[in-house]
Design a protein around this nucleic acid. Structure first.
Lengths: 238, 238
DNA sequence: CGACGGTTTGACAATCATCAAATACAGTGG
DNA sequence: CCACTGTATTTGATGATTGTCAAACCGTCG
């Protein structure tokens, strides 16, 4: 287990609180939920494909993903889950997981408190906002895979990671953690790991990014945004 | 306006009714909603990207899509909407469209009745099921774009269309309407229209599909399913 | 040291895009 | 009924992007 996975995780809850105003009872309920932590190591399958979803969870620390695997071994990461994201939040009966959910790093989860009480309207709103964001990221991912070149995909992906990690307070300006191996990146970006390697080299050669000790730094987000044809979101100054 | 777009559309509502048991009041509410139809011609922009969503709608007839456009003109169809599908169904305040919604054929819409009354639990369940299905199609689309070859993508896509059109009663066994031009298919499949053309030729040469008057027939769904590495869903015999 | 997972490199092949032009098709007005 | 127009499909030639395979390298951990 990494240090991050063991640390107390208040920051992840800040994301939900930022998505909708939560009252005292709701905040207390969330904090109470974090008393019952579940830790899983990297590579742990949190949910199997086609498996019923017993309860929604909040990812408190670490990275996870939703992944589909073809019978010949090809894999696609459909979405990434970062601290503060919800896992398995469904509103219909008998929810079943459409894709496997996999821990990419060591992770810490807790149960997501129910919101369908009539009270807890703020929590319901935060969950709704979170799933609306999730859907937005899915749509962007589709455009990324369908219409962007390898270098554009990579730039676009890095910008999205910065944006999302900033939402949960884990980005320090233009630097943020990047625990994914090049093979995981390849599975997310619809490329091979060899090609990801060459694409990252190109970005480094251009001085656009540097990697060190599990972190990336974007040296010119404007350039990357232009390259990826993506509007640049402001991040908190640092 | 096509004949289909002008005809009365009871079939589209059958999809929602099939997703969850609806009581008499809910069915009556749905039928009442179809008294106030909205027709749009092909190419009409039903929702602009970034535009607030005033009200959710049900697509009663025709095909629409969610599309994102890059500044250099590249376009990606992120999802298709078929009769019975919901458009702009959001649960959080001030919903804003993440992507443009475009009519691909002439379409007929009506407002989607609200379900958040406490009563109308069946309708809420049907809406929840529908958006769960939507999410499933998005995830599959991601895997399609990220990991399948052109011919696999096309086969997989055709199978999904058959499955979904069967859900709303518009597939006749292995034959179903296919109003998309090859350019629209290209925008959905992340290919160029030239390559779509050659891919379809290959499928026809193999005797896998035939096209005629805006319809496709799949001659060997098992083969296509194997090609696309997709489990074959049973369709109603015909 | 040795083993292991991750990164990097090179040579080569396959897939898919690009560009430009020809053909087919449907609707429209004479 | 026929030319006319615009859109959709088809074809060919060529090139760029990305994948494949195999091996070397590198750092970490036991």
């Amino acid at each position: 287990m990494s240090d991050a996975a063991l640390a107390a995780p208040p920051a992840a809850l800040a994301r939900l609180a930022a998505l909708a105003p939560l009252d005292g009872e709701e905040l207390a309920t969330l904090r109470a939920a974090t008393k019952d932590l579940r830790r899983m190591p990297a590579r742990y399958e949190i949910l199997g494909e086609g498996e019923p979803i017993p309860h929604a969870h909040i990812l408190l620390a670490g990275w996870a993903c939703r992944t589909q695997t073809l019978s010949d071994g090809r894999r696609q990461i459909a979405s990434l889950m970062l601290p503060g994201d919800l896992i398995g939040m469904c509103r219909h009966r008998d929810p079943v997981s459409v894709s496997a959910v996999l821990a990419l790093t060591d992770v810490v989860l807790c149960r997501a408190p129910r919101s369908n009480d009539g009270s807890r309207a703020g929590l319901a709103e935060a969950y709704a906002m979170s799933s609306a964001l999730d859907e937005m990221y899915l749509l962007r991912h589709i455009t990324r895979l369908g219409r962007l070149s390898a270098i554009e995909r990579t730039a676009d992906f890095l910008l999205e990671m910065r944006e999302r990690l900033d939402l949960c307070g884990l980005a320090a300006g233009n630097e943020f953690p990047m625990p994914l191996t090049q093979e995981m990146l390849a599975d997310a970006l619809g490329l091979t790991s060899v090609h990801v390697n060459r694409t990252l080299q190109a970005l480094r050669r251009d001085g656009a990014v540097t990697f060190s000790r599990g972190s990336v730094t974007l040296h010119n987000p404007q350039n990357l945004a232009r390259l990826a044809d993506r509007p640049l979101t402001r991040v908190r100054s640092h």
